[in-house]
């Protein structure tokens, strides 16, 4: 059963936001990353039975997006609802979201944070170097001044998430060196 997130209108405009245009300045790094974050959902299949009425995004650590999500959401009235949460880094065992973004500020607690994400099918996305190699699933990196990402597909498989081949093709595939569970 293929599950898709019906966020068409919303995401369409997201990309518009990420797109440079004459009327707007070049989007900021976090505006682009916010758009990427929402778009990852289109190439990920969560296990059956996951409630996907609302796309829930958790941000661990200091929220670097500023009003990026607000801008996007503000521009997409009537789109797929997106809920942004800010769970405490100290206790993530009860958090229930589809995508968990770990900001750069939480890099020192990374191992602990990752250990606490095994209870549910969450796509972990990190903003720091070596996030995927450390056991995260998708890590933002910079290549030639462009935002790219690394993917640890083993970690995603462990979390029962299926990543689309199209997404994998765009990513640098890394490994965390075996089962560290």
């Amino acid at each position: 059963m293929v599950q898709r997130l019906a966020m068409v209108g919303c995401l369409g405009l997201l990309l518009c936001a990420a797109e440079p245009s004459a009327a707007q300045d070049k989007p900021s790094e976090y505006q682009v990353k916010a758009a990427f974050l929402l778009n990852f959902a289109r190439f990920v299949e969560w296990p059956e039975g996951t409630n996907q009425d609302t796309l829930r995004i958790g941000i661990v650590g200091t929220d670097p997006f500023g009003d990026a999500f607000q801008t996007i959401l503000g521009q997409s009235p009537g789109g797929q609802p997106v809920q942004v949460m800010h769970p405490a880094a100290a206790d993530l065992s009860a958090v229930d979201c589809h995508i968990l973004f770990v900001s750069n500020s939480a890099s020192r607690e990374l191992d602990r944070i990752l250990l606490q994400t095994h209870h549910g099918p969450m796509l972990t996305v990190g903003d720091m170097d070596g996030f995927a190699r450390a056991g995260g699933m998708v890590g933002f990196i910079l290549r030639n001044n462009k935002i790219r990402f690394q993917i640890n597909s083993t970690a995603a498989t462990r979390a029962n998430l299926r990543l689309s081949a199209k997404l994998l093709r765009l990513a640098e595939i890394v490994d965390d060196g075996g089962d560290d569970r």
């Binding site: 778009n39 190439f43 935002i147 790219r148 997404l167 765009l170």
Partner: peptide, 10 residues
């Protein structure tokens, strides 16, 4: 096959 590339500006 180009959808992801377009979305992620690759």
């Amino acid at each position: 096959n180009c959808t992801a590339a377009l979305i992620f500006d690759n």
